[in-house]
Design a binder for these strands. Structure first.
Lengths: 187, 187
DNA sequence: GTAGAATATAGCACAAGTATAATAGTTCCA
DNA sequence: TGGAACTATTATACTTGTGCTATATTCTAC
């Protein structure tokens, strides 16, 4: 459902094509939601069938015709309803394949795990860079659309990204130090 | 694939039924992986078809017969292979429906968001309690199986849980303070 | 002028997880 | 003795997301 309403929320700011939405996803909400272009097109069709959006074909400034989606009043109402829905459990996916590996690492031992954690720490530091890129993209959107009313909420979401990445880094550093103190050495 | 190898990893410690595996999932790895019982049974069948486990029917101490699964040598080898597989990107799912809502909250405004964040902070504090429960469950498993060789890896995974929950709490507190400073008041 | 990159949409097979219902044995206790 | 709670497994439909392929247009660099 999140992609469904994520698209609806972005279309509330400005009418767009599926292709445009994909780009915005990759540049902004990517650190907590990603979507394949194929899924976005499929979901847009579902949104139109549900009467949440309407589409028109328009000439593109570059490339083939675009199908521009616009949010309807019904779509706006349903978005608000979803945002306030208190009955359903709202998940934060903590499913973590990497942690599953750490948990099961007795089969490979501490030396191997130490090497794996060092690589992962480098990845986390890279995630921090990507977040900075997301943040520096905001002014670019400000030029394109009127996002002044969005700004506060975007900043709060972004702060969550920083808190999370920093905690990942702290954990990896702590675990590496701990394994080293136990006498493990990466292969 | 993670559930696949998660089950295999637990079966390496001790042969068990699907029902047993579900209970262990809920009590231990739950903070980074959950599984429906229906999915566990389905996955066990797939593991057996793949030759990673074998099953036998045994009388239960209480209730109907159990189908006990045992890991095979081939299963152990494949688990190790997966743990060391360096070619595939290992995901940590940061898909976050709650954050999607925060991001799109301009439709409901800062006052509503403040109320939502307060409730979420209470949930995070509860998550901390649940982690403590997971940790205090470890000695219980130590009695049942020989998990001395697992202990180090379980502790490192658990530490990640603490780092994560604490960062969620810090973020929620910070955001609530920020909204209050901006003059927002929960409805 | 043409190859290739970027723009733009659509379709299908597959993987992984959810939700729910059906079935049935055992234990416990009112 | 009857029913609730727990133990235990199976089956099936559905949802969400991935990966890959096909198709077509327009712009840019050589």
């Amino acid at each position: 459902m999140s992609l469904h309403f994520g698209l609806l929320g972005l279309l509330k700011i400005c009418p767009m094509s599926g292709y445009d939405l994909k780009k915005i996803f990759d540049e902004s909400v990517n650190f907590f939601w990603s979507a394949q272009i194929s899924q976005i097109y499929r979901e847009l069709k579902a949104l139109e069938r549900a009467g949440c959006v309407v589409s028109t074909t328009e000439a593109s400034s570059a490339g083939p015709n675009k199908r521009i989606y616009r949010i309807t009043e019904s779509g706006k109402a349903r978005l608000k309803e979803w945002l306030l829905d208190d009955t359903r459990e709202i998940g934060e996916d903590d499913r973590n394949e990497f942690l599953m590996r750490v948990f099961l690492s007795s089969s490979i031992g501490g030396n191997e795990l130490l090497g794996i954690l060092r690589k992962r720490l480098a990845k986390y530091r890279n995630d921090l860079e990507r977040l900075n890129t997301s943040e520096s993209n905001i002014p670019k959107y400000q030029e394109k659309f009127d996002i002044e009313s969005e700004r506060l909420f975007w900043m709060i979401s972004l702060r969550r990204g920083y808190h999370d990445v920093q905690s990942h880094i702290r954990w990896a550093e702590e675990s590496i130090r701990f394994l080293e103190d136990q006498g493990y050495r990466a292969p």
